[in-house]
Structures are given as C-alpha cells and as structure tokens.
C-alpha cells in the first residue's frame, strides 16, 4: 500500500512540472507515461472514460429499491432554493460491504446520507434499508440504522456514559442492557477513563468517538457515518477502523463519507464518487479506480484541479 502511495506522489510532481509550462491549465492533459501504463485508459477522452463508470438510474433493472441491498436509493432529489443539492442519485449498497462515499465539499454527501437515514425529507425518490422504506416505515427502518451526523451537536451536558445509555434506552432497550452495552462500547473506543466527564469537556476526537458509540449502541445492521474520521487522531482512527472492520466481518454494513481518499482506498471495498449532487462513478474500489490511485481517479472524475505555484513573494528558492 505504501509503495502505491509513493507512485501517486510522483504523479503529483509530474503534474506540477506540466503545470509550469501551462499555468492556466485547469485540467492538465494526461502525461504520455501514464498512457503507456494503461493504454486502454488513455485511448478514450475523459468524458467517455467517465461514462464507463457512470451509474445512471437506467443501470438498475427495476425502478424499485433492491430488497437484498443494505441500503438502496432510487432517484433521490433535493433542492434548496436554487441549489440542486442532490440531483437524481441512485445507489445500491450491498449487504456486508464497507462502502465509501466520496466527493468534494458541497457535493451532496451529507444531504444524501441525511435523506437516506430519515433525517431530511427528500423532494423525490425512494430509500430502503434492508427492504424497508425509510419514509414509509421510519420506525422499522431507523431501528436497523445507526447514524453519525457530521456537525450535529450532542447532548453535551451529559457525561459520556450517560449519553450512550440515553441513546440506548431511546432506541428501546432496557436499562441493564443499555448499561452493559455502554460499558463494552466505552472500552472498545478507549473512553473508559473519560466516561464520567461531561461531553462538553471532551476533545474533538473523543466527541466523535462518543457519537459513534451512540450510533452503535442499538446493534444496527447498517452504520451510516458522515465524516467519522474528521479531527480524530491517528491512533483512534486506526482503532475505529478496526472496530468498523470487525462490524463488517460480523455481517454488518458500513457506509462512510470521507474526504480522505487514502483512507477509503485502504478501508472500503466499495466506493461511490458524488459530485454536484450526482453519482459519477460507483462499484467496487478496484473497478472505480481502474488500476490508478483512487485520489488521482477522483480528481480526474470530479475535475477542478488547478496547478499553480502561488505568488512570487511566497517563494523562498
């Protein structure tokens, strides 16, 4: 994995060299060296290359959600004023997969996940969790999903322990179960020593972890995590990754949204790339990246990379 990362960096350096010759280029042309590595890739222009991975609604045989999938989305739309935040997304997340949802800022990831978990009412479209329609039968659907919302507050005047027990009882379990599960989760997430501290006094990483515990306490079959690794330290991130890996190998399904391509490439087996409210590519990670590094592939799909050196006064050599 590490060696592939190094290759990716070399590509970046190469882009920079190209950029020096052509300062205004928004999308630098693919260097010929890369074409020799992947001749088939280089032969097609970017637009049709994209088409090979595009997952339009037509790809799905039935307009109805797939009951076999852990999460199945069909024709999801959401508009805020003039802004088409989600512009016709269809997606199947296979049961037992570790699914990455990637996209630039403002691509509609959070909006999509909010609608998929019953937190935001879609303008149009159907969402089903293990065959249960989220907006027709919200109680059944929500019992199967654990949600970590990015940017949402927690009831932070409770201690960490109280908060997880609160979440547990809210989802319908009795107190002894909630207490014992809370104990397990706090141990799993390495939060025992801070169990009695108010959440408001937690660090950002600890807050993420306690929110994750709240999402997992009712043993959902599907975990939907919006930016679970933001501001989490590397050790905690590795621990969380292990926990999520264990959850998947135990038959659960995990969806994470993230900006960190490296993480997604290492962790996930499936990935969907979203930009401007549409899915531009989806499938297994290997399919989507097509032999390239996921980050390069992502930048290629999404576009908008600018290669510039910055102003003269910022240069020291």
């Amino acid at each position: 994995m590490r060696s592939r990362r190094r290759v990716a960096l070399q590509h970046h350096e190469f882009h920079t060299v190209i950029g020096k010759d052509d300062m205004t280029a928004v999308n630098p042309p693919t260097p010929p060296e890369r074409g020799q590595q992947h001749p088939a890739q280089d032969a097609v222009p970017p637009a049709s290359a994209r088409a090979a991975y595009v997952a339009p609604t037509a790809q799905y045989a039935s307009p109805d959600p797939d009951p076999e999938a852990a999460l199945s989305i069909r024709g999801l739309f959401k508009t805020f004023g003039q802004n088409h935040a989600v512009d016709g997304i269809s997606l199947d997340v296979p049961a037992g997969s570790f699914y990455g949802l990637v996209g630039p800022n403002g691509a509609g990831k959070t909006t999509t996940l909010s609608m998929a978990t019953g937190l935001l009412r879609p303008d149009a479209g159907v969402v089903a969790v293990h065959g249960v329609d989220v907006w027709q039968h919200p109680l059944d659907a929500k019992a199967r999903v654990g949600v970590l919302s990015d940017g949402a507050r927690l009831f932070d005047r409770l201690t960490g322990e109280q908060l997880v027990i609160y979440a547990g009882v809210l989802s319908g379990m009795d107190r002894p179960t909630a207490i014992s599960r809370t104990k397990d989760l706090l141990q799993l997430l390495d939060l025992q020593s801070a169990a009695g501290t108010l959440v408001v006094d937690y660090s950002a990483g600890m807050t993420k972890k306690i929110a994750l515990a709240c999402a997992m306490v009712h043993a959902p079959r599907l975990l939907v995590l919006d930016e679970p690794f933001e501001s989490v330290d590397p050790v905690s991130a590795a621990n969380i990754r292990d926990i999520l890996g264990g959850f998947v190998s135990g038959g659960g399904t995990v969806i994470v949204s993230s900006h960190v391509m490296d993480l997604v490439q290492r962790m996930c087996d499936h990935v969907a790339v979203i930009t401007s409210g549409r899915v531009v590519a989806s499938g297994t990670v290997d399919d989507v990246r097509g032999g390239e590094d996921l980050e390069d592939r992502f930048v290629e799909l999404v576009g908008g990379r600018r290669v510039q050196e910055g102003p003269e006064w910022l240069r020291y050599s």
């Binding site: 322990e161 027990i165 009882v169 809210l170 169990a195 501290t197």
Partner: peptide, 22 residues
C-alpha cells in the same frame, strides 16, 4: 475538564427506562 470514572448514572439510574423516562 474534570476526569471522572464511569458508574455515576445520576438521574439516569432513577427514572424509568423507557424513552420518556430517560
């Protein structure tokens, strides 16, 4: 931040363990 050990449930140990209770 005052670090306290777990086990102090406060009011969560006294109210009924239903959603309304918690």
């Amino acid at each position: 931040s005052r670090v306290r050990a777990q086990g102090k449930l406060g009011l969560f140990g006294r109210f009924p363990d239903t959603p309304a209770g918690v």
